[in-house]
Design a protein around this nucleic acid. Sequence first.
DNA 1: CCGCAAGTTTGCTGAAGGACAAAGTGGTCC
DNA 2: GGACCACTTTGTCCTTCAGCAAACTTGCGG
Lengths: 231, 231
Amino acid sequence: MSKLDESLLTGLPPFSLLERSQIREILDHALPKRYDEGAEIFHEGHDAERFHLLLDGYIRVVKTTEGGEQIIALHISPGQLFGIAPALNRDTYPATAIAASESLALSWPVRLWGDFTTKYPGFATESYSTLGQRLGEMQTRITELATQAVEQRVAAALLRMVTQSGRKVEEGIEIAFPVTRRNISEMTGTTLHTVSRLLSAWEKDGIVHSTRKHIVVTAPHRLVLLSGAQG
Amino acid sequence: MSKLDESLLTGLPPFSLLERSQIREILDHALPKRYDEGAEIFHEGHDAERFHLLLDGYIRVVKTTEGGEQIIALHISPGQLFGIAPALNRDTYPATAIAASESLALSWPVRLWGDFTTKYPGFATESYSTLGQRLGEMQTRITELATQAVEQRVAAALLRMVTQSGRKVEEGIEIAFPVTRRNISEMTGTTLHTVSRLLSAWEKDGIVHSTRKHIVVTAPHRLVLLSGAQG
DNA sequence: CCGCAAGTTTGCTGAAGGACAAAGTGGTCC
DNA sequence: GGACCACTTTGTCCTTCAGCAAACTTGCGG
Protein backbone atom coordinates (compact mmCIF):
# COMPACT_ATOMS: atom_id res chain seq x y z
CA MET A 1 0.00 0.00 0.00
CA SER A 2 1.61 3.21 -1.16
CA LYS A 3 1.54 6.36 0.91
CA LEU A 4 -1.03 9.04 0.16
CA ASP A 5 0.23 12.35 -1.02
CA GLU A 6 -0.03 15.22 1.43
CA SER A 7 -1.27 17.58 -1.22
CA LEU A 8 -4.60 15.77 -1.05
CA LEU A 9 -5.46 17.60 2.15
CA THR A 10 -3.56 20.86 2.11
CA GLY A 11 -5.95 23.52 1.00
CA LEU A 12 -9.10 21.79 2.22
CA PRO A 13 -10.84 23.82 4.91
CA PRO A 14 -10.77 21.22 7.68
CA PHE A 15 -7.03 20.89 7.31
CA SER A 16 -5.98 24.31 6.14
CA LEU A 17 -4.43 25.34 9.42
CA LEU A 18 -2.41 22.20 10.00
CA GLU A 19 1.29 21.66 9.58
CA ARG A 20 2.82 19.27 7.11
CA SER A 21 3.73 16.76 9.80
CA GLN A 22 0.22 16.79 11.22
CA ILE A 23 -1.30 16.18 7.83
CA ARG A 24 1.14 13.33 7.30
CA GLU A 25 -0.04 11.83 10.58
CA ILE A 26 -3.69 12.16 9.65
CA LEU A 27 -3.16 10.68 6.22
CA ASP A 28 -1.36 7.69 7.66
CA HIS A 29 -4.58 6.70 9.37
CA ALA A 30 -6.78 7.30 6.33
CA LEU A 31 -8.27 4.56 4.22
CA PRO A 32 -8.87 5.62 0.62
CA LYS A 33 -11.64 3.98 -1.34
CA ARG A 34 -13.20 4.28 -4.77
CA TYR A 35 -16.96 4.02 -5.32
CA ASP A 36 -18.83 3.34 -8.54
CA GLU A 37 -21.78 5.50 -9.46
CA GLY A 38 -24.71 4.32 -7.41
CA ALA A 39 -22.56 2.53 -4.83
CA GLU A 40 -23.54 2.85 -1.20
CA ILE A 41 -20.95 4.25 1.18
CA PHE A 42 -22.88 3.81 4.38
CA HIS A 43 -26.45 3.01 5.30
CA GLU A 44 -29.00 4.77 7.49
CA GLY A 45 -29.22 3.23 10.92
CA HIS A 46 -26.00 1.25 10.70
CA ASP A 47 -23.26 1.66 13.26
CA ALA A 48 -21.21 4.71 12.44
CA GLU A 49 -17.80 3.11 12.27
CA ARG A 50 -15.98 5.62 10.12
CA PHE A 51 -16.22 9.24 9.08
CA HIS A 52 -15.41 10.32 5.56
CA LEU A 53 -13.87 12.98 3.39
CA LEU A 54 -14.77 13.23 -0.26
CA LEU A 55 -11.78 13.80 -2.52
CA ASP A 56 -13.39 13.44 -5.91
CA GLY A 57 -16.89 12.89 -7.28
CA TYR A 58 -20.25 13.68 -5.71
CA ILE A 59 -22.25 12.05 -2.93
CA ARG A 60 -25.98 12.08 -2.32
CA VAL A 61 -27.13 11.74 1.27
CA VAL A 62 -30.58 10.20 1.29
CA LYS A 63 -33.34 9.44 3.78
CA THR A 64 -36.06 6.90 3.13
CA THR A 65 -39.56 7.32 4.56
CA GLU A 66 -41.65 4.47 5.96
CA GLY A 67 -43.67 4.80 2.79
CA GLY A 68 -40.56 3.94 0.79
CA GLU A 69 -40.12 7.40 -0.71
CA GLN A 70 -36.64 8.85 -0.85
CA ILE A 71 -35.65 12.34 0.16
CA ILE A 72 -32.31 13.77 -0.79
CA ALA A 73 -31.02 15.46 2.33
CA LEU A 74 -27.73 16.76 1.08
CA HIS A 75 -25.19 16.77 -1.73
CA ILE A 76 -21.51 16.49 -0.84
CA SER A 77 -18.82 17.96 -3.09
CA PRO A 78 -15.09 17.29 -3.07
CA GLY A 79 -13.31 18.58 0.01
CA GLN A 80 -16.24 18.10 2.35
CA LEU A 81 -16.50 15.83 5.34
CA PHE A 82 -19.52 13.55 5.50
CA GLY A 83 -20.87 10.82 7.69
CA ILE A 84 -19.69 12.81 10.68
CA ALA A 85 -22.09 11.22 13.13
CA PRO A 86 -19.44 11.40 15.87
CA ALA A 87 -19.48 15.20 15.69
CA LEU A 88 -23.08 15.04 16.83
CA ASN A 89 -22.43 12.39 19.38
CA ARG A 90 -24.41 9.82 17.45
CA ASP A 91 -23.41 6.21 17.08
CA THR A 92 -25.44 5.34 13.98
CA TYR A 93 -25.61 7.06 10.61
CA PRO A 94 -28.75 9.18 10.33
CA ALA A 95 -28.97 8.72 6.55
CA THR A 96 -27.62 6.72 3.63
CA ALA A 97 -24.77 7.95 1.43
CA ILE A 98 -24.66 7.02 -2.24
CA ALA A 99 -22.11 7.98 -4.86
CA ALA A 100 -23.84 10.23 -7.41
CA SER A 101 -20.93 9.73 -9.75
CA GLU A 102 -17.76 7.71 -9.55
CA SER A 103 -16.12 8.97 -6.37
CA LEU A 104 -13.03 8.76 -4.26
CA ALA A 105 -13.11 9.23 -0.50
CA LEU A 106 -10.88 8.87 2.51
CA SER A 107 -12.20 7.59 5.80
CA TRP A 108 -11.10 7.21 9.38
CA PRO A 109 -12.44 5.20 12.33
CA VAL A 110 -14.73 7.30 14.49
CA ARG A 111 -12.55 6.91 17.55
CA LEU A 112 -10.06 9.23 15.86
CA TRP A 113 -12.64 12.02 15.72
CA GLY A 114 -11.97 12.89 19.34
CA ASP A 115 -8.23 12.81 18.73
CA PHE A 116 -8.49 15.08 15.70
CA THR A 117 -10.68 17.67 17.37
CA THR A 118 -8.58 17.91 20.50
CA LYS A 119 -5.19 17.74 18.82
CA TYR A 120 -6.07 20.07 15.96
CA PRO A 121 -8.36 22.87 17.12
CA GLY A 122 -8.68 24.19 13.59
CA PHE A 123 -10.14 20.91 12.53
CA ALA A 124 -12.84 21.14 15.19
CA THR A 125 -13.67 24.73 14.36
CA GLU A 126 -13.97 24.05 10.66
CA SER A 127 -16.07 20.97 11.23
CA TYR A 128 -18.54 22.86 13.33
CA SER A 129 -18.70 25.66 10.81
CA THR A 130 -19.63 23.08 8.22
CA LEU A 131 -22.34 21.82 10.50
CA GLY A 132 -23.60 25.34 10.95
CA GLN A 133 -23.79 25.81 7.21
CA ARG A 134 -25.72 22.58 6.80
CA LEU A 135 -28.13 23.62 9.50
CA GLY A 136 -28.62 26.85 7.61
CA GLU A 137 -29.18 25.07 4.32
CA MET A 138 -31.75 22.80 5.90
CA GLN A 139 -33.55 25.79 7.34
CA THR A 140 -33.60 27.34 3.88
CA ARG A 141 -35.12 24.21 2.44
CA ILE A 142 -37.78 24.10 5.15
CA THR A 143 -38.66 27.69 4.39
CA GLU A 144 -38.84 26.97 0.68
CA LEU A 145 -40.99 23.92 1.13
CA ALA A 146 -43.29 25.81 3.46
CA THR A 147 -43.74 28.95 1.41
CA GLN A 148 -42.83 28.49 -2.23
CA ALA A 149 -44.53 26.94 -5.23
CA VAL A 150 -43.09 23.91 -6.98
CA GLU A 151 -41.63 25.90 -9.85
CA GLN A 152 -39.66 28.13 -7.52
CA ARG A 153 -38.37 25.21 -5.53
CA VAL A 154 -37.18 23.33 -8.59
CA ALA A 155 -35.49 26.45 -9.92
CA ALA A 156 -33.78 26.94 -6.57
CA ALA A 157 -32.66 23.32 -6.49
CA LEU A 158 -31.08 23.61 -9.93
CA LEU A 159 -29.31 26.78 -8.90
CA ARG A 160 -28.01 25.13 -5.77
CA MET A 161 -26.55 22.26 -7.76
CA VAL A 162 -25.08 24.67 -10.27
CA THR A 163 -23.49 26.68 -7.50
CA GLN A 164 -22.11 23.65 -5.76
CA SER A 165 -20.85 21.77 -8.76
CA GLY A 166 -21.29 23.86 -11.89
CA ARG A 167 -18.60 23.63 -14.54
CA LYS A 168 -18.47 25.89 -17.50
CA VAL A 169 -19.24 24.48 -20.94
CA GLU A 170 -19.76 26.46 -24.11
CA GLU A 171 -23.55 26.42 -23.81
CA GLY A 172 -23.62 27.58 -20.20
CA ILE A 173 -23.01 25.89 -16.86
CA GLU A 174 -23.37 22.18 -16.47
CA ILE A 175 -24.23 20.29 -13.32
CA ALA A 176 -21.19 18.10 -12.88
CA PHE A 177 -22.88 14.88 -11.82
CA PRO A 178 -25.72 12.77 -13.21
CA VAL A 179 -29.17 13.95 -12.10
CA THR A 180 -32.48 12.38 -13.04
CA ARG A 181 -35.90 14.03 -12.96
CA ARG A 182 -36.65 11.73 -10.10
CA ASN A 183 -33.61 12.96 -8.18
CA ILE A 184 -34.77 16.52 -8.56
CA SER A 185 -38.24 15.57 -7.40
CA GLU A 186 -36.66 13.97 -4.33
CA MET A 187 -34.89 17.21 -3.56
CA THR A 188 -37.95 19.40 -3.95
CA GLY A 189 -40.87 17.36 -2.70
CA THR A 190 -42.71 16.94 -5.98
CA THR A 191 -43.08 14.25 -8.63
CA LEU A 192 -40.77 13.39 -11.50
CA HIS A 193 -43.64 14.21 -13.87
CA THR A 194 -43.89 17.77 -12.70
CA VAL A 195 -40.12 18.20 -12.88
CA SER A 196 -40.13 16.86 -16.42
CA ARG A 197 -42.81 19.33 -17.45
CA LEU A 198 -40.92 22.23 -15.90
CA LEU A 199 -37.67 21.28 -17.59
CA SER A 200 -39.46 20.93 -20.92
CA ALA A 201 -40.97 24.37 -20.52
CA TRP A 202 -37.64 25.88 -19.55
CA GLU A 203 -35.96 24.13 -22.45
CA LYS A 204 -38.48 25.76 -24.77
CA ASP A 205 -37.69 29.12 -23.18
CA GLY A 206 -33.96 28.59 -23.63
CA ILE A 207 -33.20 28.59 -19.92
CA VAL A 208 -31.80 25.09 -19.68
CA HIS A 209 -30.68 22.34 -21.99
CA SER A 210 -31.07 18.86 -20.65
CA THR A 211 -30.37 15.39 -21.85
CA ARG A 212 -30.80 12.13 -20.03
CA LYS A 213 -29.23 12.58 -16.58
CA HIS A 214 -27.46 15.77 -17.56
CA ILE A 215 -28.46 19.38 -17.27
CA VAL A 216 -26.87 22.53 -18.61
CA VAL A 217 -28.20 25.84 -17.37
CA THR A 218 -27.94 28.29 -20.21
CA ALA A 219 -29.60 31.30 -18.57
CA PRO A 220 -28.88 31.22 -14.84
CA HIS A 221 -30.16 34.75 -14.32
CA ARG A 222 -33.61 33.81 -15.58
CA LEU A 223 -33.61 30.84 -13.24
CA VAL A 224 -32.82 33.18 -10.38
CA LEU A 225 -35.91 35.17 -11.21
CA LEU A 226 -38.02 32.03 -11.32
CA SER A 227 -36.60 30.84 -8.01
CA GLY A 228 -38.51 33.53 -6.20
CA ALA A 229 -35.91 36.18 -5.63
CA GLN A 230 -38.98 38.39 -5.96
CA GLY A 231 -39.70 37.74 -9.61
CA MET B 1 -27.74 41.42 42.93
CA SER B 2 -28.33 38.18 44.82
CA LYS B 3 -26.55 35.00 43.87
CA LEU B 4 -28.33 32.46 41.72
CA ASP B 5 -29.05 29.12 43.29
CA GLU B 6 -26.97 26.23 42.03
CA SER B 7 -29.97 23.94 41.84
CA LEU B 8 -31.03 25.88 38.74
CA LEU B 9 -28.46 24.01 36.68
CA THR B 10 -27.88 20.69 38.39
CA GLY B 11 -29.87 18.11 36.53
CA LEU B 12 -29.91 19.91 33.21
CA PRO B 13 -28.16 17.89 30.52
CA PRO B 14 -25.51 20.44 29.58
CA PHE B 15 -24.40 20.65 33.19
CA SER B 16 -25.18 17.21 34.52
CA LEU B 17 -21.58 16.07 34.68
CA LEU B 18 -20.19 19.14 36.38
CA GLU B 19 -19.15 19.56 39.97
CA ARG B 20 -20.79 21.95 42.38
CA SER B 21 -17.88 24.37 42.27
CA GLN B 22 -17.89 24.44 38.48
CA ILE B 23 -21.60 25.18 38.40
CA ARG B 24 -21.06 27.95 40.90
CA GLU B 25 -18.45 29.41 38.62
CA ILE B 26 -20.70 29.21 35.58
CA LEU B 27 -23.61 30.77 37.40
CA ASP B 28 -21.50 33.65 38.60
CA HIS B 29 -21.13 34.72 34.99
CA ALA B 30 -24.79 34.25 34.11
CA LEU B 31 -27.23 37.06 33.58
CA PRO B 32 -30.82 36.12 34.39
CA LYS B 33 -33.64 37.89 32.60
CA ARG B 34 -37.40 37.70 32.46
CA TYR B 35 -39.34 38.11 29.20
CA ASP B 36 -43.01 38.91 28.71
CA GLU B 37 -45.05 36.87 26.28
CA GLY B 38 -44.21 38.10 22.80
CA ALA B 39 -40.96 39.75 23.87
CA GLU B 40 -37.98 39.39 21.57
CA ILE B 41 -34.85 37.85 23.04
CA PHE B 42 -32.61 38.28 20.03
CA HIS B 43 -33.09 39.17 16.41
CA GLU B 44 -32.10 37.46 13.17
CA GLY B 45 -28.96 38.93 11.70
CA HIS B 46 -27.88 40.82 14.79
CA ASP B 47 -24.49 40.26 16.34
CA ALA B 48 -24.57 37.18 18.50
CA GLU B 49 -23.38 38.66 21.75
CA ARG B 50 -24.75 36.13 24.20
CA PHE B 51 -25.91 32.54 24.28
CA HIS B 52 -28.89 31.53 26.36
CA LEU B 53 -30.39 28.86 28.55
CA LEU B 54 -34.13 28.71 29.11
CA LEU B 55 -35.09 28.10 32.71
CA ASP B 56 -38.83 28.60 32.53
CA GLY B 57 -41.39 29.29 29.82
CA TYR B 58 -41.25 28.56 26.10
CA ILE B 59 -39.40 30.18 23.23
CA ARG B 60 -40.26 30.25 19.55
CA VAL B 61 -37.36 30.56 17.12
CA VAL B 62 -38.60 32.21 13.96
CA LYS B 63 -37.33 33.01 10.48
CA THR B 64 -38.89 35.66 8.27
CA THR B 65 -38.90 35.30 4.48
CA GLU B 66 -38.31 38.19 2.07
CA GLY B 67 -42.03 38.00 1.41
CA GLY B 68 -42.66 38.80 5.06
CA GLU B 69 -43.98 35.37 5.96
CA GLN B 70 -42.84 33.82 9.19
CA ILE B 71 -41.66 30.27 9.66
CA ILE B 72 -41.31 28.75 13.08
CA ALA B 73 -37.99 26.95 13.02
CA LEU B 74 -37.93 25.58 16.54
CA HIS B 75 -39.54 25.54 19.95
CA ILE B 76 -37.32 25.69 23.01
CA SER B 77 -38.42 24.18 26.33
CA PRO B 78 -36.96 24.74 29.78
CA GLY B 79 -33.48 23.33 30.25
CA GLN B 80 -32.42 23.85 26.66
CA LEU B 81 -29.68 26.06 25.33
CA PHE B 82 -30.62 28.42 22.52
CA GLY B 83 -29.02 31.15 20.49
CA ILE B 84 -25.87 29.06 20.40
CA ALA B 85 -24.47 30.68 17.28
CA PRO B 86 -20.95 30.34 18.68
CA ALA B 87 -21.24 26.56 18.62
CA LEU B 88 -21.57 26.82 14.87
CA ASN B 89 -18.86 29.38 14.54
CA ARG B 90 -21.29 32.07 13.52
CA ASP B 91 -21.18 35.63 14.68
CA THR B 92 -24.76 36.62 13.99
CA TYR B 93 -27.99 34.99 15.09
CA PRO B 94 -29.51 32.98 12.25
CA ALA B 95 -33.07 33.53 13.49
CA THR B 96 -35.19 35.54 15.88
CA ALA B 97 -36.19 34.27 19.33
CA ILE B 98 -39.51 35.28 20.84
CA ALA B 99 -41.00 34.28 24.18
CA ALA B 100 -44.08 32.16 23.49
CA SER B 101 -45.11 32.63 27.09
CA GLU B 102 -43.66 34.55 29.99
CA SER B 103 -40.16 33.15 30.26
CA LEU B 104 -37.01 33.21 32.34
CA ALA B 105 -33.59 32.67 30.81
CA LEU B 106 -29.94 32.90 31.73
CA SER B 107 -27.37 34.16 29.29
CA TRP B 108 -23.62 34.40 28.93
CA PRO B 109 -21.36 36.39 26.63
CA VAL B 110 -20.28 34.33 23.63
CA ARG B 111 -16.60 34.58 24.49
CA LEU B 112 -17.31 32.22 27.39
CA TRP B 113 -18.50 29.52 24.98
CA GLY B 114 -14.93 28.57 24.21
CA ASP B 115 -14.05 28.54 27.90
CA PHE B 116 -17.02 26.35 28.76
CA THR B 117 -16.40 23.80 26.05
CA THR B 118 -12.71 23.43 26.78
CA LYS B 119 -12.96 23.51 30.56
CA TYR B 120 -16.00 21.27 30.80
CA PRO B 121 -15.89 18.53 28.17
CA GLY B 122 -19.31 17.27 29.23
CA PHE B 123 -20.75 20.63 28.34
CA ALA B 124 -19.33 20.44 24.82
CA THR B 125 -20.52 16.89 24.30
CA GLU B 126 -24.04 17.65 25.46
CA SER B 127 -24.23 20.79 23.38
CA TYR B 128 -23.28 18.95 20.24
CA SER B 129 -25.74 16.18 21.01
CA THR B 130 -28.42 18.84 21.19
CA LEU B 131 -27.31 20.15 17.85
CA GLY B 132 -27.46 16.65 16.44
CA GLN B 133 -31.02 16.27 17.66
CA ARG B 134 -32.02 19.57 16.11
CA LEU B 135 -30.48 18.54 12.83
CA GLY B 136 -32.53 15.37 13.04
CA GLU B 137 -35.72 17.26 13.80
CA MET B 138 -35.16 19.56 10.87
CA GLN B 139 -34.61 16.60 8.62
CA THR B 140 -37.88 15.14 9.84
CA ARG B 141 -39.69 18.35 9.04
CA ILE B 142 -38.20 18.48 5.57
CA THR B 143 -39.34 14.94 4.97
CA GLU B 144 -42.82 15.74 6.22
CA LEU B 145 -43.13 18.86 4.12
CA ALA B 146 -41.88 16.99 1.07
CA THR B 147 -44.04 13.91 1.35
CA GLN B 148 -47.07 14.42 3.58
CA ALA B 149 -50.43 16.09 3.15
CA VAL B 150 -51.44 19.08 5.22
CA GLU B 151 -53.61 17.11 7.62
CA GLN B 152 -50.76 14.79 8.51
CA ARG B 153 -48.34 17.63 9.02
CA VAL B 154 -50.67 19.53 11.32
CA ALA B 155 -51.36 16.38 13.32
CA ALA B 156 -47.62 15.76 13.61
CA ALA B 157 -47.01 19.35 14.71
CA LEU B 158 -49.60 19.08 17.46
CA LEU B 159 -48.09 15.83 18.65
CA ARG B 160 -44.65 17.37 18.70
CA MET B 161 -45.84 20.24 20.86
CA VAL B 162 -47.67 17.85 23.12
CA THR B 163 -44.56 15.71 23.51
CA GLN B 164 -42.35 18.67 24.17
CA SER B 165 -44.58 20.56 26.53
CA GLY B 166 -47.70 18.58 27.26
CA ARG B 167 -49.12 18.77 30.76
CA LYS B 168 -51.89 16.55 31.97
CA VAL B 169 -55.31 18.08 32.58
CA GLU B 170 -58.50 16.18 33.26
CA GLU B 171 -59.65 16.34 29.63
CA GLY B 172 -56.39 15.10 28.19
CA ILE B 173 -53.01 16.70 27.53
CA GLU B 174 -52.67 20.42 27.11
CA ILE B 175 -50.02 22.26 25.16
CA ALA B 176 -48.37 24.34 27.86
CA PHE B 177 -47.94 27.57 25.97
CA PRO B 178 -50.24 29.81 23.90
CA VAL B 179 -50.56 28.71 20.27
CA THR B 180 -52.65 30.40 17.60
CA ARG B 181 -53.91 28.86 14.38
CA ARG B 182 -51.49 31.11 12.64
CA ASN B 183 -48.61 29.76 14.69
CA ILE B 184 -49.51 26.24 13.69
CA SER B 185 -49.72 27.26 10.06
CA GLU B 186 -46.23 28.75 10.39
CA MET B 187 -44.95 25.44 11.66
CA THR B 188 -46.55 23.37 8.94
CA GLY B 189 -46.44 25.47 5.82
CA THR B 190 -50.15 26.00 5.38
CA THR B 191 -52.68 28.77 6.08
CA LEU B 192 -54.41 29.61 9.33
CA HIS B 193 -57.72 28.93 7.55
CA THR B 194 -56.84 25.36 6.80
CA VAL B 195 -55.59 24.82 10.35
CA SER B 196 -58.81 26.25 11.71
CA ARG B 197 -60.85 23.87 9.57
CA LEU B 198 -58.81 20.89 10.68
CA LEU B 199 -59.11 21.77 14.35
CA SER B 200 -62.85 22.25 13.96
CA ALA B 201 -63.16 18.86 12.35
CA TRP B 202 -61.05 17.22 15.04
CA GLU B 203 -63.04 18.99 17.72
CA LYS B 204 -66.20 17.48 16.25
CA ASP B 205 -64.53 14.07 16.30
CA GLY B 206 -63.52 14.49 19.93
CA ILE B 207 -59.81 14.39 19.21
CA VAL B 208 -58.94 17.85 20.48
CA HIS B 209 -60.55 20.61 22.46
CA SER B 210 -59.35 24.07 21.65
CA THR B 211 -60.08 27.54 22.81
CA ARG B 212 -58.46 30.76 21.79
CA LYS B 213 -54.70 30.19 21.93
CA HIS B 214 -55.03 26.98 23.89
CA ILE B 215 -55.25 23.40 22.75
CA VAL B 216 -55.98 20.22 24.69
CA VAL B 217 -55.46 16.93 22.92
CA THR B 218 -58.06 14.50 24.19
CA ALA B 219 -57.27 11.53 21.97
CA PRO B 220 -53.54 11.52 21.20
CA HIS B 221 -53.64 8.01 19.76
CA ARG B 222 -56.09 9.09 17.06
CA LEU B 223 -53.84 12.01 16.21
CA VAL B 224 -50.96 9.59 15.83
CA LEU B 225 -52.97 7.70 13.23
CA LEU B 226 -53.77 10.92 11.39
CA SER B 227 -50.14 11.99 11.47
CA GLY B 228 -49.26 9.32 9.00
CA ALA B 229 -47.77 6.61 11.16
CA GLN B 230 -49.26 4.40 8.45
CA GLY B 231 -52.94 5.15 9.04
C1' DC C 1 -69.00 49.41 29.85
C1' DC C 2 -67.79 50.31 25.24
C1' DG C 3 -64.85 49.90 21.33
C1' DC C 4 -61.18 47.93 19.20
C1' DA C 5 -57.84 44.52 18.05
C1' DA C 6 -56.54 40.03 17.70
C1' DG C 7 -57.92 35.67 16.94
C1' DT C 8 -61.30 32.38 14.84
C1' DT C 9 -64.80 30.37 11.86
C1' DT C 10 -66.93 29.39 7.55
C1' DG C 11 -68.30 29.65 2.67
C1' DC C 12 -67.05 29.83 -2.08
C1' DT C 13 -63.94 29.48 -6.09
C1' DG C 14 -60.22 28.30 -8.86
C1' DA C 15 -55.69 26.84 -9.78
C1' DA C 16 -51.80 23.98 -8.83
C1' DG C 17 -50.07 19.91 -9.08
C1' DG C 18 -50.51 14.86 -7.77
C1' DA C 19 -52.23 10.37 -9.60
C1' DC C 20 -52.79 7.43 -13.23
C1' DA C 21 -51.84 5.92 -17.89
C1' DA C 22 -49.23 5.06 -21.82
C1' DA C 23 -45.99 5.79 -25.29
C1' DG C 24 -41.38 7.39 -26.69
C1' DT C 25 -36.02 7.28 -26.33
C1' DG C 26 -31.52 6.15 -25.33
C1' DG C 27 -28.01 2.94 -23.31
C1' DT C 28 -26.27 -1.20 -22.20
C1' DC C 29 -25.62 -6.02 -22.01
C1' DC C 30 -25.56 -10.20 -24.23
C1' DG D 1 -28.00 -6.26 -33.68
C1' DG D 2 -31.75 -7.03 -30.64
C1' DA D 3 -33.97 -6.86 -26.27
C1' DC D 4 -34.53 -5.07 -22.12
C1' DC D 5 -34.36 -1.50 -18.73
C1' DA D 6 -34.10 2.95 -16.94
C1' DC D 7 -35.33 7.34 -17.87
C1' DT D 8 -38.34 10.75 -20.02
C1' DT D 9 -42.36 12.93 -22.08
C1' DT D 10 -47.10 14.01 -22.51
C1' DG D 11 -52.03 13.68 -21.85
C1' DT D 12 -56.22 13.62 -18.86
C1' DC D 13 -58.55 13.73 -14.65
C1' DC D 14 -59.52 15.03 -10.03
C1' DT D 15 -58.34 16.27 -5.32
C1' DT D 16 -56.44 19.31 -2.23
C1' DC D 17 -55.85 23.43 -0.44
C1' DA D 18 -54.64 28.44 -1.10
C1' DG D 19 -56.99 32.76 -1.90
C1' DC D 20 -60.51 35.84 -1.11
C1' DA D 21 -64.30 37.53 1.58
C1' DA D 22 -66.95 38.33 5.49
C1' DA D 23 -68.95 37.54 9.90
C1' DC D 24 -68.26 36.22 14.57
C1' DT D 25 -65.97 35.94 19.33
C1' DT D 26 -63.15 37.13 23.11
C1' DG D 27 -60.23 39.80 25.79
C1' DC D 28 -58.28 44.08 26.93
C1' DG D 29 -57.52 49.00 27.51
C1' DG D 30 -59.43 53.24 28.20
